[in-house]
Design a protein around this nucleic acid. Structure first.
Lengths: 358, 358
DNA sequence: TTGTAGGCGTTATCAA
DNA sequence: TTGATAACGCCTACAA
């Protein structure tokens, strides 16, 4: 790889002249500039990042830490962030903590486990001298990522920073739960069961809130029995669907598509026709939702938008142009309702008594 | 971030002594060593990679270039590679060329387009001074990645290097096609249709070869009409399934799971019972295969193994310990048959005349 | 308009 | 056993 020095020698000028030309300084003669530029092009010179990074204390590298790259939500976010930074002449370096890989489901309430991987990862990035760090969570939790005296810009994506000093970018789960419930209600359903995620999960709580809000607005009594807590897995969708069907619901809102698939399993087994006999909605717009039969109506998590927005915020921070609009600064990205075949109009039998769910 | 100099000052010793201790040199007094080590621990000192990389000409960073991170096959490979290097004290830097994002399907026969993104990416990594480069293709093609005089170790994964100097790691498609066909035959099928990928694709060609080999071994006449070329998309699975059903096949081997889903669409629409009336097999073990009904028998591409093997080879190269076993050096990773519900025993009616497919 | 010198943090060489 | 010094490639203040 060619260096400044070599270019200078080839052109018969000094190193600083070449440097000045590259950095667009105006104090260089036209002839010299042309000649040097020519040689640079020929040799395909590129500055050495290490030398550059050492000299200026900026590297134009942004570090991305992900909890687990194999989660369906993580890659699109990462992709969008990388794309954005690439377009703005920043490089990114990605660290995959592989938390699920290492500990399956046992880590996210175990601060110690997380920190034991997170701290070295952060130090790693710091020693690479990244200009900023983006932390991407695997699901929405309150996360203690960065110490209060953290020196470089940092944000938390798809999770909430415990420390209000750091901006968080999350999805608007409350509105998500609200929208999908409203949609179900607009299709005539009034007895709507929910297969929720784990009870202590923020997604679960906020989507439930949205669900309740929608019921309230439509003057439907909220029956807590109709909220069943699963564990996001297919099997729990199956078993909770059984319960809800026996409770006489006409529609089921599953808080992810995987559990919706589990509900499908149950309904199929029992010969209950989805869309005809009962409506089902999911959440995430996971690839599988297109391949379930009937295709699943769901709420798309706009992962690209999340990534892009995060990158945008980070870039502003790097340029010292970011002003948080509130404190704590939480940016909520809306979900997008994707209507497919699994929800059908429910015909109310008049005086059937199910106008109000009891 | 603490520097060597500061540590030296705090301990009242010289910079070189500290450096020697960190690098495990033996020419240091026991007392000094203990004291310095103590301070290093307290301050959480980590060497500055830029300074280090500048000094030694090695960075212990491996560059990974992917054609598109959003492809289902890419992330697991990347994950496995990162994991392996992390365990061996190497860092990785990932560049996502986003080829599909930029040009959809129009790039992979367009050398110019590819090179216009690839060359800057390589230069980028070179200027970061990575010790080696792993190129991950989105699908198997002959790819012209690296020039003949490339200075650092480089390999091509999930694709074939045009230049035989570079090692390639690919899947064993021939055996894959063979295995799945054998399996279908062992279930009693003799008239087996194929929904292949695009005709000029290496996956298509090799899987077809495996299919033919299996037929040959079982003394089944190969009927070229039963190979239909799709374009890997769901719709083409639908239409080619129609053709094959009309040709009277008892089983369909789809060269990816997406097209198998398309075949499902057709069969479902026509009321043809999968597994009962006709058997279907896919390829990839895409997530969706578990959610199709009946669950799809398919051939798993062992992406983790591919990643791991690639990383292993690259590491050996970095340590100058790699000796290619053949030239060109192509490492083939076998696929793994995943049997589910979509293939059922076909009962031969005696003297039905379909022992030999004509 | 161009060139010189110093320093970013580390390691290697050599001298003390 | 320890320390001074040069060098890696680049940028910048300042001198010429």
């Amino acid at each position: 790889m060619v260096t400044l020095k070599e270019i200078a020698q080839m052109c018969g000028v000094s190193i600083s002249t070449v440097s000045n030309i590259i950095n667009g300084k105006s104090n260089v003669g036209e002839d010299t500039r042309r000649k040097v530029l020519e040689v640079i092009k020929q040799t395909g010179y590129k500055p050495n990042y290490f030398a550059q990074g050492m000299r200026k204390q900026k590297t134009r590298i942004v570090g991305i830490i992900v909890e687990d790259l194999n989660l369906f939500s993580t890659t699109p976010i990462v992709g969008a962030i990388m794309a954005y930074f690439e377009d703005h002449d920043y490089r990114t370096i990605l660290i995959d903590m592989r938390l699920y890989d290492k500990w399956q489901d046992t880590w996210y309430n175990d601060e110690q486990k997380i920190q034991s991987v997170l701290q070295p990862s952060i130090k790693e990035l710091l020693s690479i001298k990244v200009d900023g760090i983006v932390y991407i969570a695997g699901h929405c939790r309150i996360i203690n990522c960065f110490p209060n005296d953290f020196k470089i810009p940092a944000i938390v994506v798809y999770g909430l920073s415990k420390n209000p000093r750091f901006t968080s970018v999350i999805i608007d789960d409350k509105k998500g739960g609200y929208d999908i419930t409203k949609y179900l209600i607009s299709a005539g359903h009034r007895r709507i069961g929910v297969i929720a995620g784990t009870a202590d999960n923020l997604h679960t709580m906020n989507r439930s809130l949205g669900y309740q809000q929608a019921l309230f607005e439509e003057k439907i009594l909220f029956n807590p029995d109709l909220i069943r807590y699963g564990d996001w897995m297919r099997e729990s969708g199956y078993s909770e669907a059984e319960y809800l069907v026996n409770s006489g619901v006409t529609a089921i809102f599953c808080m992810n598509d995987i559990m919706a698939a589990g509900a499908y399993d149950y309904l199929y087994e029992k010969g209950i026709k989805i869309a005809e006999d009962i409506s089902v909605a999911g959440y995430d717009n996971n690839v599988i939702s297109e391949y379930l039969r009937p295709a699943l109506t769901t709420n798309e998590i706009q992962l690209n938008e999340i990534g892009q927005e995060s990158a945008k915020v980070m870039l502003k921070m790097l340029e010292n142009k970011y002003i948080p609009s509130k404190n704590p600064d939480i940016i909520e990205i809306p979900c997008r309702l994707v209507t497919r075949e699994s929800v059908k109009k429910y015909k109310l039998e008049p005086a059937s008594g199910n106008t109000v769910v009891s």
